[in-house]
């Protein structure tokens, strides 16, 4: 939903010159292991973008996409096409905590809009916006598939369930003080899911 405002042209810009790579040695090793899981390097584009999202501070710049393209020996436009298709790749920076409130069918019927309105009022932002201090971005989300605990909100690598207009403020306050569940922590968690315990 909020991600719909992202378009390739408005945020990514033209392909940068190759050569200014930023992946750490650990990231290089992770990518190498992941590439070994598939018969083709191309299949590592999605996990490669997750690595890049972590290495580049939580969002994908043109340089980040170029680095994935270079390392997997694919054209920039192909990797850019993938990066722009999926909603979880951030094409511009998010706040330290990205509040994604599900407003899909069940949640909409058990008070999700009250939760969204409470957050709007508390933080002074609308869905799709980030607070001036960069602490929070607010989005409406499509079904997060935890409908038994509606209203549900995803924040980075964590789901919060059974949210109401009454308890949401305490959750937001807790997050403000927390270093967990940030966009970079989410990207890191997803990268690690691809790797075996030994690797």
């Amino acid at each position: 939903m909020a991600e719909q405002t992202q378009t390739a042209n408005s945020t990514i810009g033209a392909a940068p010159a190759a050569g200014s790579h930023r992946f750490s040695a650990q990231a290089e090793a992770e990518l190498a292991e992941i590439v070994s899981h598939y018969p083709e390097k191309k299949a590592a584009i999605l996990p490669g973008l997750w690595i890049a999202q972590r290495e580049y501070g939580g969002s994908l710049s043109a340089a980040a996409i170029q680095e994935v393209a270079d390392r997997l020996e694919r054209p920039f436009v192909e990797v850019e096409g993938v990066a722009t298709f999926y909603t979880m790749y951030n094409l511009r920076p998010r706040g330290k905590h990205h509040l994604e409130v599900c407003t899909c069918l069940t949640c909409a019927c058990v008070g999700a809009y009250d939760v969204v309105h409470k957050i709007e009022h508390k933080l002074g932002i609308k869905p799709g916006e980030t607070t001036k201090d960069g602490a929070f971005t607010l989005s409406e989300a499509e079904c997060l598939n935890f409908c038994g605990a509606g209203t549900v909100m995803q924040v980075g690598d964590k789901y919060f369930g059974n949210l109401t207009a009454e308890n949401i403020e305490a959750v937001v306050d807790q997050l403000r003080a927390s270093e967990e569940h940030t966009p970079m922590k989410l990207a890191d968690a997803i990268v690690k899911l691809h790797l075996s315990a030994g690797g």
């Binding site: 999605l46 909603t87 079904c143 691809h194």
Partner: peptide
């Protein structure tokens, strides 16, 4: 039998 996890990135 080798088993790998492949994570999506947000797409119904």
């Amino acid at each position: 039998f080798e088993l790998y996890i492949h994570m999506g990135a947000g797409s119904y």
